Amino acid sequence: MAFVGAFKLTKRDGYEAFAKAIGATAEQISKAEALRPVTEISASGDTYTVKRVFPHQTTTNTFTLGQKCDLNLVEGKTAKDVVVKLEGGKLHMQGAKFTCVAEIEGNNLKETITLGDASMTRWSERCIMSFAGKYVMEKRENYEAFAAASGASADQIARSSSATLTTEVEENGDTYVVKRIYPGQTVTNTFTVGQTQEFSFADGKKAQAAASRVGNKLVVTGPNFSQESEIVDGKLKETLTFKGATMIRYSTRA
C-alpha cells in the first residue's frame, strides 16, 4: 500500500497559525519549530495505524475506513467523530471542525490539515531503513514449534535451543548479503529486491524465494515459507513462518 512506511518531516506551511488554533502555547510552538517528527504508517486491510514519533511523545491513532473514530493530536488534543475514507488515492479524514487530506507525491507524504479556520500543509520524506550491520541474537519466540514444522528432530531442537547466532548484513542498493554465523557453520545468501533467487538454510536445504521491500520491512517469500525483517527500537526483528508455524527472533546490534 502506498501509505505504508515511515516518513520524516521536511517542511510545513502555516504551522504557527495552526498550532495556535489547537491551543499550543508560544513556548510549545517555539520548541516544535525545529522538530522533525517521524510518521509511521501500517495497514491491515481497511484498518490503519498511524504513529507520530516526537522526541518528547508518540501519538498513535488506529482507524478503519468508513468508521467514526477519535483522533489524538499533539499536546493532548483530540478530534472527535472523524470518518476516514480512501478516495482517488487520498486518505480523507473528516470531522466536525477537523479535516486532513493525505496523499503520496513522489517520495513524500503530503498532508493538508484544517482545524476551524486554520490550515497547515506538511511534507514528510519516505525513510528507507538500513539493515546494514552486525547483530547478535537476543531471544526467539516459539522456536521449538517452528523448528519441528521445518523437519528438525527432537535431538536437533534440544541441541540448537541454546546455540548462538550472529547475523551480518551488507547492503548495496537493492542487493543484500546476509551471513548467518552459527557454531560450526556460516550460511550466506546474496539476493536482490524484486528478483526470485535461491536461498540456503542452516539445515542444508535450499529453496527459491522472492525478495521485496514493503515499507521498512524486507520480505522474503517462498513455497510454504516467509520471512519479514524490520528494525524495531534499534533491534533486528525477524518474523519467520513455515507451514503455518511462526517464530519471532530478536537480535541486538553488536
Rank of each mutant, 00 (worst) to 15 (best):
A245D: 06
Y48Q: 02
G173N: 05
I231L: 13
R253E: 11
P37C: 08
C69V: 10
E33L: 13
N108A: 08
G222T: 01
G5Q: 00
A19W: 10
A152G: 09
Q227G: 11
E75A: 11
V84E: 13
G95D: 02
F131Q: 09
G23T: 12
D70P: 00
Q28Y: 05
A102G: 06
F146R: 00
G133N: 11
S44P: 00
T246A: 01
N172G: 14
T221A: 11
M1A: 14
G194P: 00
E111C: 15
L240I: 15
Q94M: 12
S162A: 14
Q94G: 09
A152H: 08
F3R: 06
T167Q: 12
T78G: 01
L236G: 10
T59P: 02
F7C: 05
N172Y: 10
G14S: 01
A43F: 00
L9S: 07
V4F: 02
A21W: 04
K85E: 15
T239W: 06
E40T: 06
L86K: 03
S119K: 15
G215W: 01
E33P: 01
N108D: 14
C100P: 01
I113Y: 03
L71K: 03
F242H: 07
K8Y: 05
R249G: 04
I29D: 09
F54G: 03
M137E: 13
N61C: 05
A26R: 04
V101Q: 06
V4H: 03
G133K: 07
Q195S: 12
S226W: 02
K243R: 15
T186F: 00
T175W: 01
T60Q: 10
W123Q: 11
K110H: 04
A118I: 03
N224T: 04
T196I: 13
T58I: 12
K51P: 00
E198G: 00
S200I: 01
T121C: 09
S44G: 08
T190F: 03
A6G: 08
T166M: 09
A207L: 13
A245M: 12
L109V: 13
I231F: 06
K80P: 11
G173S: 06
E228L: 10
A32Y: 07
G45R: 14
T188D: 01
A32P: 10
A210E: 15
A245Q: 13
A24L: 15
F131H: 10
V187Q: 02
K134R: 10
Q57S: 08
S251C: 07
S251Y: 05
Y15R: 06
S119W: 11
F54E: 06
F131K: 08
V53A: 11
I22G: 11
T241N: 15
T246H: 03
